[in-house]
Amino acid sequence: MPLIHISMRAGKPEAYRQAMFDSLYRALRETLGVPEDDQFMTISEHDAANFRYGAAFGVTRSDDLVYIGITVFNTRTGEQKKTLFKRIAELLGENPGIRPENVFVVIADAAKENWSVGHGLQQFA
Rank of each mutant, 00 (worst) to 15 (best):
M1A: 12
I4L: 13
H5G: 02
H5Y: 10
R9P: 02
A10P: 01
K12S: 13
P13E: 07
P13Y: 09
Y16I: 06
A19I: 12
D22M: 04
S23R: 01
L24S: 04
A27S: 07
L28R: 04
R29I: 14
R29W: 05
T31F: 05
G33D: 09
P35S: 15
D38T: 04
D38Q: 03
Q39M: 07
F40S: 00
I43G: 07
I43D: 09
H46K: 12
H46R: 11
H46G: 04
D47Y: 05
A49N: 03
A49E: 12
A49R: 11
A49K: 14
N50S: 01
F51I: 07
R52N: 08
G54E: 03
A55L: 07
A55R: 08
A56N: 01
A56Q: 05
F57Y: 10
G58C: 06
V59S: 05
R61T: 02
R61Y: 05
S62M: 11
S62V: 00
D63H: 10
L65G: 07
V66G: 01
I70S: 01
T71L: 02
T71D: 12
V72M: 03
F73E: 00
N74M: 01
T75R: 00
T75L: 05
G78F: 06
E79I: 09
E79Y: 06
E79A: 14
T83E: 14
R87A: 02
I88S: 01
A89C: 12
E90K: 09
L92V: 01
G93S: 05
G93I: 03
E94F: 06
N95D: 10
N95E: 13
N95L: 11
E101P: 01
E101R: 07
N102C: 06
V103S: 06
V103A: 12
V105W: 04
V106R: 09
V106C: 12
D109F: 04
A110C: 13
A111W: 08
K112W: 02
W115P: 02
G120F: 15
G120Q: 14
Q122L: 15
Q122H: 15
Q123I: 07
F124W: 12
